[in-house]
């Protein structure tokens, strides 16, 4: 009976210690993750919104990316989170675009749901200009931003991704390469071409 008593005491003594360690580790990870997600969520939303041109779809993509990062990569080193997160986000954006394409094709075969097929993914009310009077600078900035978003949306996906990750999110070349799943040289090429295209299209707003 002594053996059983020793075993039981060892087992019950182990559980609270492990439980405390697990709790502390979980709290630390959660704080780090929360800080990271809070840092990137707005820019991530804007990147998804520019690519998808739809607020709700962009929010869904960001939420999916957050969930997938937390579910699969929470235990990875914190410095890897940004490239992983933006890679996941780009996959979510592509998934949404594919679903839109498939849905559009299916709807085009169904003439009695033509109204749904013709539905514009972007909310026209959100795209409409605010009728309230605004200072001239805000109007100009708003116009410049709209032109920039349109030009970014028209870029090839890889160029847009390289430009936004490098210039907007501020990732370095290596981190951008990890996020895009390509070489650093490819990132530089995509970024350079995006910059040239945007300058050619938007020069009137800045020059």
């Amino acid at each position: 009976m002594n053996t059983f008593a020793t075993l039981l005491a060892g087992t019950t003594g182990l559980l609270p210690h492990r439980g405390m360690h697990l709790l502390e580790s979980t709290q630390h990870d959660a704080r780090s993750l929360e800080s990271f997600l809070a840092t990137v969520e707005r820019k991530a939303f804007r990147i998804a919104q520019i690519a998808l041109r739809h607020e709700d779809d962009a929010l869904d993509a960001v939420q999916d990316a957050m969930l997938r990062l937390v579910r699969h990569y929470a235990t990875r080193p914190a410095e890897e989170w940004a490239p992983l997160f933006y890679r996941i986000l780009e996959n979510c954006v592509r998934d949404t675009q594919r679903r839109r394409t498939v849905r559009g094709r299916v709807m085009s075969w169904l003439p009695w749901v033509g109204r749904a097929a013709d539905e514009d993914p972007s909310d026209p009310l959100e795209q409409a200009p605010d009728p309230a009077p605004q200072p001239e600078a805000r109007v100009q900035a708003g116009e410049a931003l709209q032109a920039l978003e349109a030009a970014l949306a028209a870029l090839p996906a890889r160029q847009r991704q390289a430009f936004l990750l490098r210039n907007f999110e501020g990732l370095d070349v290596e981190a951008t390469a990890r996020a895009m799943g390509c070489s650093a040289g490819s990132v530089k090429t995509h970024y350079f071409r995006a910059l040239q295209t945007l300058r050619a299209q938007l020069g009137e707003y800045w020059e």
């Binding site: 929360e34 997600l37 969520e41 707005r42 939303f45 929010l59 960001v62 939420q63 937390v70």
Partner: peptide
């Protein structure tokens, strides 16, 4: 772009916060 991200509507910021809490 940074200015546009900083001036997101309150509704959008709230939904982003809820998404973050859901993930955590």
């Amino acid at each position: 772009l940074e200015a546009s991200a900083a001036s997101l509507p309150a509704r959008t910021r709230s939904r982003l916060t809820r998404a973050r809490y859901a993930a955590l």
